[in-house]
Amino acid sequence: MKKYFMALSTAALVNVAPYALASSTDLTVTGVITPAACTPSLSNGGVVDNGKISAKDLNPTTSTMIGRHPLKLTVACDAPIQFALNPIDNRAGTGALRTWFGLGLTDAGEKLGHFSIGVSNTLADGVAAQAIESDDNGQSWFRAHGSAPGLLLSVASTTDDSTPLRVKDLTMDFEVRTSIAPANSLTLTDEVVMDGSATFEMKYL
């Protein structure tokens, strides 16, 4: 019975179609294959260890910075190319501000704190350059003094912060600053593990 009904429906559509107004929509698939590939890496395996912090050393009413750790970012490409890094907060929603990376939650569901990343000493193919970032997916750029979730990070010449350079080898100094939320907003009766994590995704421009 089901097949018979479908056959009737099809026949009805065929009879009506010549008298119906035609309409259509287009699908366009685009893209670019780049001959170059880049590999980003961080010194110390990208690990920042703040060690053990005593709860009594935390400020009760304001955030407490517990560490400033240097890391070196290196990007090595097969050939000069425009690229950017997309910082992804793997603990999104646990930082106090969108521009900070979260440290995860306590067992009681409280935001433990955050870490931020400062950027300095940028070298593009051995020449002094400046870090730039974009908050509109690369449509526009401005000078960067740090790296934040969702803001593309790239590099430009020291005289023009509006256009990413074509670079083969890039180095940047990162400073990772870790802060704990006010102690009176946290349940600290047991040990709490800091669980900050970020991924820097390579994007070709």
Rank of each mutant, 00 (worst) to 15 (best):
residue 3 K to L: 11
residue 4 Y to F: 15
residue 12 A to R: 03
residue 15 N to M: 11
residue 15 N to F: 12
residue 18 P to E: 06
residue 19 Y to R: 06
residue 22 A to Y: 02
residue 22 A to G: 08
residue 22 A to T: 14
residue 23 S to Q: 12
residue 24 S to T: 15
residue 25 T to S: 11
residue 29 V to P: 08
residue 32 V to E: 11
residue 34 T to M: 02
residue 36 A to D: 11
residue 38 C to K: 02
residue 39 T to G: 06
residue 40 P to T: 06
residue 40 P to Q: 00
residue 41 S to V: 09
residue 43 S to D: 11
residue 43 S to W: 00
residue 44 N to Q: 09
residue 45 G to H: 07
residue 47 V to L: 10
residue 47 V to T: 13
residue 50 N to Y: 08
residue 51 G to F: 08
residue 52 K to F: 03
residue 53 I to L: 03
residue 54 S to P: 00
residue 54 S to C: 02
residue 57 D to C: 02
residue 58 L to K: 05
residue 59 N to H: 13
residue 61 T to E: 10
residue 61 T to R: 09
residue 62 T to V: 13
residue 64 T to R: 03
residue 65 M to R: 09
residue 66 I to H: 06
residue 66 I to Q: 12
residue 68 R to F: 05
residue 71 L to N: 07
residue 73 L to K: 09
residue 75 V to S: 15
residue 77 C to V: 11
residue 78 D to T: 15
residue 85 L to Q: 01
residue 85 L to A: 10
residue 90 N to G: 03
residue 90 N to S: 10
residue 91 R to L: 08
residue 92 A to W: 11
residue 94 T to F: 02
residue 98 R to G: 07
residue 98 R to D: 15
residue 99 T to R: 15
residue 99 T to L: 12
residue 100 W to Q: 14
residue 108 A to W: 05
residue 108 A to Q: 15
residue 109 G to H: 14
residue 112 L to Y: 08
residue 113 G to P: 12
residue 116 S to K: 10
residue 116 S to Y: 07
residue 116 S to E: 14
residue 117 I to H: 05
residue 118 G to Y: 00
residue 118 G to R: 03
residue 120 S to C: 01
residue 120 S to F: 05
residue 122 T to L: 04
residue 123 L to N: 00
residue 123 L to W: 02
residue 123 L to A: 07
residue 124 A to K: 05
residue 128 A to N: 13
residue 128 A to K: 10
residue 130 Q to E: 15
residue 131 A to H: 11
residue 131 A to I: 05
residue 131 A to G: 14
residue 133 E to N: 14
residue 135 D to A: 05
residue 135 D to F: 07
residue 137 N to M: 02
residue 137 N to Y: 12
residue 138 G to A: 11
residue 138 G to S: 03
residue 138 G to P: 12
residue 139 Q to P: 00
residue 143 R to V: 14
residue 143 R to D: 07
residue 144 A to F: 12
residue 145 H to W: 08
residue 146 G to K: 06
residue 150 G to N: 04
residue 151 L to T: 00
residue 152 L to M: 13
residue 154 S to D: 06
residue 154 S to A: 03
residue 155 V to R: 04
residue 156 A to I: 02
residue 159 T to W: 08
residue 165 L to G: 13
residue 174 F to Q: 06
residue 176 V to H: 08
residue 177 R to Y: 03
residue 182 P to F: 00
residue 183 A to C: 01
residue 184 N to P: 02
residue 185 S to N: 13
residue 185 S to T: 15
residue 186 L to Y: 06
residue 187 T to F: 00
residue 189 T to Q: 05
residue 189 T to N: 13
residue 192 V to K: 13
residue 193 V to E: 02
residue 194 M to K: 05
residue 198 A to L: 12
residue 200 F to C: 11
residue 200 F to K: 11
residue 200 F to M: 14
residue 204 Y to P: 10
residue 204 Y to Q: 14
residue 205 L to N: 05
residue 205 L to F: 07
